[in-house]
Amino acid sequence: MESDKKIEELLEKYFEATATVAEEETLRTYFSQESVATHLAQYAPMFQYFTSAKEERFTKQVPLKPKRNYFKWASIAAAAVLLVGLYMNRPEADPTPDDLMAMYTPEEIESAQEALAMLGMNLNKGTAQLSHLGEFEKTTNKFLTKE
């Protein structure tokens, strides 16, 4: 155990920052013990703190494996798949009027138009007749409101 005198000298050197690492170590061990001279006790917390501060550890795991660029490659692959898919599923071009002319003779087209016109006419006839039903409804409504 160091004498108080020695410790005082070391402390002086310590505060002037001229003490060696070994001398500072002596101070730390001196202040880590239970019995410290009362006039030196005020320095104890410093050295005790430095000793305890050294106990702290870095516990977090560091993922060192460099992140393989899976995402990069996956995005490239996805883009490629998308492009191929789009190419494969390209919707067939709609038949243009030119194609219609090419596929059917003018007579055929004309008869088709005629048939469609007839269909429209007859449909209109039917709906016109249906309008009589409206009259029927009006009269029933009259009865209902009278009651």
């Binding site: 310590y14 505060f15 005020q42 410093m46």
Partner: peptide, 11 residues
């Protein structure tokens, strides 16, 4: 040296 003295002073 300055830092040590400061700590001592505050303490």
């Amino acid at each position: 040296s300055r830092a040590r003295k400061l700590v001592r002073e505050k303490l």
